[in-house]
Design a protein around this nucleic acid. Structure first.
Length: 501
RNA sequence: GGGCCGUUAGCUCAAUUGGUAGAGCUGCGGACUUUUAAUCCGUAGGUUCCGGGUUCGAGCCCCGGGCGGCCCA
């Protein structure tokens, strides 16, 4: 660092606490002390020392010499004896002690003058326990390993939510739970991958930059390729590419990656979110539903050691065993007290909505009306994990029509704690029907429905080579984390999109 | 897109009817060789989000804007 010029910030404008820290850095460099050394002789992690010396009585000397590092999270300086709590990456803490008798006057004075809360330090010394029994390293020598120029927020008050999200690094420093979420997420995604690999699935990465956006109904982000002089879309779903894989003979295929939807952002929607999709030849929406339940249960088991998880509010949520299932038309009929079927007229559905003071877009057709009514009257009330089966065909253009019931699609949605976690299908593989459905959607798009899909000729060509009967499903990975932890989406995503300050 | 609420010191928050902007922690100076959010003494720290208006006087009232949260679509 010392070879670089002074920081560009005008020092006069800095808050006092930052000015003081900058001046310490500058003074150290002027005195020939490197505040950002390239390497320090660390011999043990704090965790290793805690593990090795877990049961020492108070006021013990071990004779063991170690070199440790950590961020200073707590300090107590008295006249001739100083204490500091060091914390390392996984949250393990260990106390460092500096006594006049051991380090000498110069090193003790320098410690008091140079070290602030939040600094990284190296301490070499003997492993002991204090008179109060605290496992400590009694320093023979210490040095700065990284000078912090900004003061940490106070540790005893909760950080404002906005600061937590905008400055996640500060959140991670201060809040062990924030680090737990990151590790839980890693455990969950690893569990998902393990579950699929165990079942003989192949993981692929399909295009995020697409010239046509398909596979879902959502508004895309648009960007531009200079090399091709072409507007391209950030994908809204990987579905059409994963089906191309199945056509090509990759009969069990999955992808975990990001989707982008240029739509609202709230406590359960993020413009950029992690999606899991999986397709299997010779599966149906029944077998893919069983698979879905198993991978969620395996993820809970891997992350928490149990299929009964404890949520952020302290309540328990049971994901074990079989999950209940209901049909969309059946459960909606029950909620309305009147039978609705794929033949129920749009006028009648509008009347149901009006009678319940539910405002609906007058442009909505039968399928959308059914889904709106269902979501309002049934979906939002579902708490236990529940498969909702057999959707209106017209709103499921990529789904096979029910084998026995015309007008209904072999599709389910998985509801967990009142929100949609996953959706699965018996895939439509007849290229002629598929072309007809996609063309209808494209016509709607031309009519101004921005959520309708455009025609993907290459995808249809792939289907025309013959896709085996298949089941497929998609699951929001962020939402899986929400389901398992009870957190909002902005706390399951490390760095969610926020407006610039 | 609409409605409501919030925005004040490094952090978390106060501020009566419109009348000198405060506290705790943090910081700075000092005392203390066993501290765990130590204790004690002293002390500093503010463009009250931004711009305009009303007023003798605005953190507070009015108008516009920014950012955020909640609810609704």
């Amino acid at each position: 660092m010392s070879e670089f010029p002074e920081p560009p910030m005008p020092e006069d404008d800095l808050p006092e606490q930052m000015r003081v820290r900058r001046e310490k850095r500058d003074r150290l460099i002027a005195d020939g002390v490197e505040p950002y050394p390239v390497e320090v002789p660390r011999t043990h992690t704090l965790g290793e020392i805690r593990a090795t010396y877990s049961d020492l009585p108070a006021d013990t000397s071990t004779g063991a010499e170690v070199g440790v590092t950590g961020r200073v999270m707590f300090m107590r300086n008295t006249g001739k004896l100083c204490f500091a709590t060091l914390r390392e990456g996984d949250g393990t803490e260990l106390q460092a002690m500096l006594s006049l008798a051991k380090v000498g006057q110069d090193a003790l004075t320098a410690w008091k003058a140079d070290v602030d809360l939040g600094d990284h330090v190296f301490v070499r010394g003997e492993v002991i326990t204090s008179k109060r029994g605290e496992l400590s390293v009694l320093a023979d020598e210490w040095r700065l390993t990284s000078k912090a120029l900004r003061p940490l927020p106070v540790a005893h008050k909760e950080l404002a939510e906005e600061t937590r999200i905008r400055q996640r690094y500060v959140d991670l420093i201060l809040r062990p739970k924030a680090r737990d979420v990151v590790r839980t997420r890693a455990n969950v995604t690893r569990a998902l991958r393990d579950s699929f690999h165990r079942r003989g699935y192949t993981e692929v990465e399909t295009p995020m930059l697409q010239t046509l956006h398909g596979g879902a109904s959502a508004r895309p982000f648009v960007t531009h390729s200079n090399a091709f002089d072409l507007d391209v879309y950030l994908r809204i779903a990987p579905e059409l590419y994963l089906k191309r894989c199945v056509v090509g003979g990759i009969e069990k295929v999955f992808e975990i990656n990001r989707n982008f939807r240029n739509e609202g952002s709230d406590s359960s929607h993020s413009p950029e979110f992690a999606m899991l999709e999986y397709y299997q030849a010779y599966a149906t929406y029944d077998t893919i539903g069983v698979l879905t339940r198993e991978i969620v249960q395996e993820a809970a088991e891997a992350a928490f050691g149990s299929q009964v998880v404890t949520l952020a509010d302290g309540t328990e949520y049971d994901l074990s065993g079989e999950w209940s299932a209901l049909t969309m038309y059946g459960s909606l009929s029950d909620a309305l007290g009147e039978e609705v079927t794929p033949d129920t007229s749009v006028e009648k559905l509008r009347a149901f909505a009006a009678a319940r003071e539910l405002e609906v877009d007058p442009k909505l057709g039968h399928g959308k009306l059914i889904e709106e009514l269902w979501e309002h009257l049934v979906g939002s009330k579902l708490h236990a994990p529940t498969f909702v089966r057999d959707f209106p065909l017209e709103t499921s253009p990529l789904t096979r029509e029910h084998r026995d019931q015309p007008g209904i699609a072999e599709k389910w949605d998985l509801y967990v704690r009142g929100f949609e976690l996953a959706t699965g299908y018996s895939e439509l593989v007849d290229p002629v029907v598929e072309r007809r459905r996609l063309t209808e959607q494209a016509k709607l798009a031309a009519g101004g429905d921005s959520e309708a899909m455009r025609l993907d000729e290459d995808f249809l060509r792939a289907l025309e080579y013959g896709m085996p009967p298949s089941g497929g499903a998609g699951m929001g990975v962020d939402r899986l984390l929400m389901a398992l932890t009870g957190l909002g989406i902005r706390d399951t995503i490390l760095f969610p999109l926020v407006r610039p300050e």
